[in-house]
Amino acid sequence: MVIDTSKTISAPASGDTTASCWSCGDMRAAHFCHACGKVQPPLPVNYFSFFGLPRKLNVDVLRLERDFYELSRKLHPDLNARADKREQEWSLEQSSLLNDAYRTLKDPIKRTQYLLRLEGVELEEQSKTATEKARASGEVKKQIVPPDLLEEVFELNMQLEELRMNKKMGEHDPALVKDLEAHKAQFEKKYEELAEELKGHWNRWDQAVDRNNGDERRGALDSMVDLLNRRSYIRNLVRDVNEALGN
């Protein structure tokens, strides 16, 4: 998944237009003017600050949902149809920003990935970077996930291939199916455990933010990257096993 951050973190064209309402000149909020209630042009915000949230991972999703519905009502382009042309445009822009922000923040994994990106972690680049380092130093690259997980993933894929073969040939191997079912249960359990583990890292991150501790922040970010990596293998496996078993 690729999040387009370009429109959210781009620098403001000029500093002074963002702090005051374009219409009445009073202090404005991110979306509306406090004083006159007019829709404002989008500020260069990130999704957290769009909702007035700190850059933390434990998010009150119920409150987020409430804010989302309230804001979408107010920002709805139809509602502002009679407004000034610029205001209409802004309400369109704000609405789409609102939708992106909500969709990203309400999902625990998307929220985590988004935060990592905000913090400068390039999830897509990590493997390539590690390879380049290994090449330069002549060392063997450290695999990003534990070798025994890779081993398991590989073995299970071999079994899946056998199962697909069998199906094609019209053969049935109950022992193999049973084995796969068992593995699947195991991986599904692992998948659920990852969700728990992730919460632990969230707490570490949030605390580090409160304490403003750089090392702890880094540590929490690294743990989250590591977890997301393991997760993508397990997610694929569960998906492939389901597909092969025909569930």
Binding site: S127, P147, L150, F154, R235
Partner: peptide, 13 residues
């Protein structure tokens, strides 16, 4: 050599 791509969860031997 058994390696994986965390970007997509693919494996290669």
């Amino acid at each position: 050599g058994l390696v994986g791509a965390p970007e997509c969860g693919d494996v290669m031997k």
